[in-house]
Amino acid sequence: MTRLLIAAAGAALCLAALPPAAQEEGSGPLGLPNKAGASVLMTELNAIEAANIIRRGRVIPLGREYRPEMPLGPGQDYALSRTTSRGDTSTRVETTLSAPLTAGTYLEGLGHTGTGGEDPRFFNGFTPDEVAPEDGPGAAGVEHLKPIFTRGILIDMVTVNGGPMDAGQEITVADIEKALDWFGVNEPGNGDAVVFHTGWGRHWIADNDTYLSGAPGIGLEVAEWLIEREVALVATDAWTVGVQPVKEGPERDFPVSLALTQKHGILLHDNVESERLIDAEISEFAYIFAPVPIRGATGSPGAPLAVY
């Protein structure tokens, strides 16, 4: 069995060296008539590599608890209602949740952020009408995404920074390289998931106005670095992966999301409770998440898992 796993890992490295188009047939930014984005980079061999990281069998949920007090954007509401049905032999309670899919810990789908202007476009050139048609499921719904089971690595910016980061503070490539060297972790590669811990989660519920006012995060320098390494997913403990406010352009523009997702199909996971990785003192793990296959949805709620 050990020989098989070693051989498989070697094959994974060979496969990762190929361009994505060589791994999947077809046409499109990632070698497909692509509705699945960078989730196609997570192959069976990525799953084997991730499984080989698991040594202690410990599972850490990284999703924040959904509750009325959590930060919500302008115009967003959260409501959980209950209906009780009583019979002669049993009682059933049904719950109905009314909340945006971008509340709590959520995965940004390929139809969430696109370019502006007179001819707005989303990943793979999809138009807003194709992403969210009035009479159909849409071309970039999360139901097209592949399940996530891949190597995850933590970039602990609190340690590198000497304390929690502030809104508008940008993570650099030098910061990432310092964190990787500090914790002895290899840099991310084809199909990996990268989780940034900035300490911004300290404001979650404790100070929602501050939490939503801005965020530390990456800029275009790191975005290009991640694109070159063909990662599949980027996660953060803030409400956005990209630093806010941005240093150039409109205050709440999203150049990092456009670079990662709109151009390259890289998935983004926001509001992740990365503090639990710090508490567990781990920097490398299997990152697992199955998007809820809501047909036509541009995002997915749910709790990613870190297993080590």
Rank of each mutant, 00 (worst) to 15 (best):
H144R: 12
L145S: 07
P147Q: 12
P147W: 11
P147R: 08
I148W: 06
F149N: 07
F149D: 03
T150P: 01
R151I: 07
R151H: 12
G152R: 01
G152E: 09
G152K: 09
L154S: 04
I155R: 01
D156Q: 09
M157F: 10
M157H: 07
V158T: 15
V158K: 06
T159C: 09
N161Y: 09
N161L: 08
N161G: 14
D166E: 14
A167Y: 03
G168R: 06
G168S: 09
E170H: 04
I171Y: 03
T172L: 08
A174F: 01
A174Y: 01
I176Y: 05
A179L: 01
W182P: 03
W182K: 14
W182I: 05
F183C: 10
V185D: 07
V185C: 08
N186E: 14
N186S: 13
N186T: 12
N186M: 11
E187R: 14
E187M: 12
E187V: 08
P188I: 09
G189R: 13
G189Q: 08
G189C: 11
G189L: 08
G191Q: 09
G191H: 05
G191V: 11
D192P: 05
V195D: 00
V195W: 01
V195A: 00
F196N: 02
H197T: 06
T198C: 12
T198H: 06
T198R: 06
G199S: 12
W200S: 02
G201D: 12
R202G: 05
R202W: 03
R202S: 13
W204G: 01
I205C: 11
A206E: 15
A206C: 03
D209L: 11
D209S: 13
T210M: 06
Y211V: 05
Y211A: 04
Y211M: 04
S213C: 08
G214T: 10
A215T: 15
A215I: 03
A215C: 15
G217R: 00
G217K: 01
G219C: 10
G219M: 05
G219T: 09
L220E: 15
L220Y: 03
E221R: 10
E221Q: 13
V222N: 06
A223R: 02
E224W: 05
I227H: 07
E228F: 01
A232Y: 02
A232S: 13
V234K: 04
T236H: 00
D237Q: 03
A238E: 02
A238R: 01
A238K: 00
W239Q: 00
V243M: 02
Q244E: 10
K247F: 07
E248L: 12
E248G: 02
E248Y: 13
G249Y: 09
P250D: 14
